[in-house]
């Protein structure tokens, strides 16, 4: 039973990794750039949430959509103003720019006097509630993380499968030139992909904030979401979620059964093992477009 308890903790942490990993994958599929600022987007999202709730006094449930919207706009503009001008440069340049965006984001936050360098408590209204299932006790915060992640993934799946814009985003990632030929507004949709990724990072940030507090360095969690994306194959949306769950669960188990310190190494051990067994990741395909 204790094992189950640990597993649930791992799953809820894994959902957070999964949400951030989804952001990595979305942007990679659309623009072939790895966005190393994804963790920082989450951090900004959490600070957004903090601002909405303390400065504006909004309730937690209103903070979530407001932060998503704010970060969505931020993501859209970042793509349009910072990344698009260097499109067509080697992928290396794009990656450097995203790293730069991450540093700037962290720097700007720490420059806010009195707020940026502090660690903030961001309490959810349900923070000491629990769900009791027989002998199992699940913290409401964890339950909300798991529930919200699943809803979000469902929404994302529906977007890509059933909407015109979603199918067009897939089309762009499969054959960008052909998408131009079809008159699909490739640039605008790429900005939209950034907006979605940033919005998801905001969800992750606002959900995680009650658990870990809000501080300028919380974006480093991106370093663990990255292996999650790699495990999933880096091109697969379900893969990102599964990868996130695997990392979360492995971490929780390592923290519980193994000596201190192993917890932080475990995700990378898993990635290395995975890359040796399946170089394309769990859900990755080696199928390329036909010649």
């Amino acid at each position: 039973m204790q094992l189950l308890q640990v597993l649930i903790g791992g799953i809820s942490q894994g959902c957070i990794y999964g949400l951030i990993a989804l952001g990595f994958v979305l942007i990679y599929k659309a623009t072939e750039a790895v966005n190393f600022a994804q963790g920082e987007l989450m951090m900004l999202g959490a600070f957004c949430g903090l601002g909405f709730s303390t400065a504006l006094g909004l309730p937690y449930w209103a903070v979530l959509p407001c932060s998503v919207l704010a970060m969505g706009i931020f993501g859209f503009l970042t793509e349009a103003l910072v990344l698009r001008p260097i499109l067509g440069q080697p992928a290396f340049a794009l990656i450097m720019v995203t790293i730069g965006v991450g540093y700037v984001a962290r720097g700007l936050i720490t420059m806010i006097p009195g707020i940026g360098t502090e660690t903030h408590v961001f309490e959810a209204p349900f923070h000491d509630e629990v769900i009791t299932l027989g002998p199992l006790v699940i913290g409401m915060e964890q339950a909300v993380i798991i529930g919200a992640s699943f809803l979000l993934c469902g929404g994302l799946f529906a977007l890509f499968r059933y909407t015109r814009v979603g199918v067009a985003m897939q089309a762009i990632s499969q054959n960008q030139l052909a998408a131009y030929y079809m008159g699909i507004p490739v640039k605008r949709l790429n900005s939209l992909v950034w907006a979605i990724s940033a919005g998801m990072a905001a969800v992750a940030g606002v959900l995680l904030a009650p658990v870990t507090f809000v501080h300028a360095n919380m974006g480093f969690i991106g370093l663990k979401a990255f292996p999650a994306a790699v495990i999933g194959g880096f091109e697969s949306l379900p893969g990102a979620i599964v990868g996130g769950l695997i990392i979360g669960i492995v971490e929780a188990l390592a923290g519980f059964y193994l000596p201190e310190g192993f917890k932080d190494v475990a995700p990378y051990v898993v990635v290395l093992a995975m890359l040796m067994i399946r170089p394309h990741g769990l859900f990755g395909t080696s199928m390329r477009k036909r010649v």
Binding site: V167, Q170, A171, Q174, N175, L177, A178, Y181, K289
Partner: peptide, 10 residues
């Protein structure tokens, strides 16, 4: 376009 350029996975 030359060479069809369909969207292979759609």
């Amino acid at each position: 376009p030359e060479g069809r350029e369909v969207f292979p996975m759609l």
